[in-house]
Simulated assay, not measured.
Amino acid sequence: MFFIATQVSSGQSFGETLARFGLTPPAQISALSHAHNAHLRINGRPPAPGTRTVQTVELIVPIDVRLSVAEFRPVINLIDGLRPRPVGESGPPTLTHGVSIRITRNLEAGVGLNWIQTVRKLNNPDSSAPLEFVDVGHNGLPFDEQPPPGQAPRREMSDVPCGPVAPAAGRGVDFTATTTLAVLDRGRIVLAAGKTWGFSIGTARTLPAGVQVRQPRDASAADFANQLRILRAGINQFRQATGGGLNYLLPPRPNTILLP
């Protein structure tokens, strides 16, 4: 767990602000009772989540992100392909080998949370694509999904990365990704928690030899440092800008308070 200092604007409730970070009503009560928010107490009592402020005040929010892998399995589809190429369209071959992955988070819906995924892809069938890139990110932002204003991103990140069967041993797609939940506040993008995983494609047309998986694990400090480097390069696989100049922060140490 770490803490982030944010603002509750005049007229807003504490609960509305805490909900931006996915805190449930019981977690909101606990946060407002925490010693870090003692400055908000009136007559020794913490404010209720529904209390509205009469002026802008600082609020210390506990962030306790836990990611779980709901699905991670190799897949092969030789009939239609995982991402089939339309008939008559030139370009890379139909992608038949890959993995299906779903990663979930513990926190509730919150507009101050979003998913980021960065990738290193060797032997990409699209020779024009970069070796490392921000997956999906577009419109100058690195996020997996950009919902309409005021709507929270989904609580689950899912993906089915894939490629063609390898033309020869050691020449198949080798895909490594770090999937991260980021905390967003006042221009900061804090990489809060992540999973690193991958797979490589072989010459076989059946499992398990056709797709060799690297099981998801908690992202290490080195994984996050590598992700930060890719984010600062700021391009997706189509070489579109994904916000290389944004204010990214590595995961804070436990019990750290991130001040503005």
Rank of each mutant, 00 (worst) to 15 (best):
R154H: 12
I79S: 13
A177L: 12
P251V: 01
T118W: 08
Q7N: 12
I63P: 02
P130D: 08
L207K: 09
S9D: 12
A19G: 12
L82P: 00
D64M: 10
L228Y: 01
M157D: 06
T104V: 13
G44T: 05
H138C: 03
N114K: 00
Q117C: 15
R66A: 15
G98D: 01
V119N: 14
D144R: 07
P149C: 00
N43V: 00
R73I: 02
P142C: 00
I101F: 10
M157N: 14
L67R: 02
Q151S: 13
L23T: 05
V165I: 15
M1T: 14
Q55S: 15
Q12H: 13
L191H: 09
P147Q: 01
D80T: 13
R214A: 14
A233Q: 13
A169C: 05
A19V: 04
A169N: 12
H138I: 03
F2M: 10
I101T: 05
R214Q: 13
P62N: 10
A192C: 07
G112A: 15
R188I: 00
G243C: 06
P92Y: 04
P254Y: 06
I235E: 09
P161S: 13
V111S: 15
N247R: 13
Q117G: 00
A48V: 09
G137T: 01
L40Q: 07
G50N: 14
Q7H: 09
L107Q: 14
G172N: 14
I235A: 07
F72C: 04
P47V: 07
G187N: 01
Q146I: 14
A168E: 15
G110I: 00
L191A: 11
A152H: 07
P208N: 01
H138A: 10
L32N: 06
G140I: 02
R155H: 11
H97W: 08
A241H: 06
P74K: 04
V190D: 06
N43D: 12
Q237I: 07
R105G: 14
L228D: 11
V8W: 06
A225T: 06
L107M: 12
V134Q: 04
V165E: 01
L78E: 01
H34K: 05
L228K: 11
G112K: 08
H34P: 05
N77M: 00
A222T: 11
R205V: 08
I4G: 10
A225Q: 15
V61F: 11
M157V: 02
R102D: 12
Q7L: 14
I79A: 13
L32T: 08
M1C: 10
L207C: 03
Q240V: 04
V213K: 12
G243S: 06
P47S: 07
P125K: 01
G243T: 03
F3N: 10
A222F: 03
L131H: 09
E145I: 03
A233N: 13
T242W: 04
T242M: 06
V8P: 00
L122M: 10
Q28F: 05
N247P: 04
P251G: 07
N139W: 09
N114M: 00
P167I: 05
V136K: 07
T242A: 02
N226K: 12
R66W: 05
T6P: 03
R229Y: 00
V87H: 10
I42E: 13
Q12T: 01
A241K: 05
L184F: 13
N37K: 06
A169Q: 15
